[in-house]
């Protein structure tokens, strides 16, 4: 098996970044950003998730197929949440009975 072997420092750097982002998300939670607080929290979480996927799970050095699989999982989640949300949000628009 030919694999790209990373160094110890590489993993430690990813780990350190994840810790900093954890501190950032906790800190941000205690500052009132109004409507932006959830997007900020989610952006940080996405970044952290992406770091784990790309570097701990080695997707960065993987074949296109692995990228495709990882992306498909995310995309389908967006479909599930997005289209269900579409129903909830648009209830009660323009003369429909609000439920």
């Amino acid at each position: 098996m030919s694999h790209n072997i990373s160094s110890l420092g590489y993993y430690l750097r990813v780990f350190a970044t994840l810790l900093i982002l954890t501190a950032a998300t906790v800190g941000a939670a205690f500052i009132d950003f109004g409507a932006f607080s959830t997007p900020i929290a989610m952006t940080i979480a996405m970044t952290k998730g992406l770091l784990v996927v790309l570097f701990f799970m080695h997707v960065w050095h993987s074949k296109k197929l692995t990228w495709l699989f990882a992306a498909a999982g995310f995309l389908w989640l967006v479909i599930l949440i997005g289209m269900t949300f579409g129903d909830i949000v648009s209830r009660g628009w323009q003369g429909q009975p609000a439920l």
Binding site: M83, G86, D87, I88, V89, S90, R91, W93, Q96
Partner: peptide
């Protein structure tokens, strides 16, 4: 079932 008519159209 009570789904929004707009979602129904889509």
């Amino acid at each position: 079932s009570g789904q929004s008519a707009y979602a129904g159209m889509v």
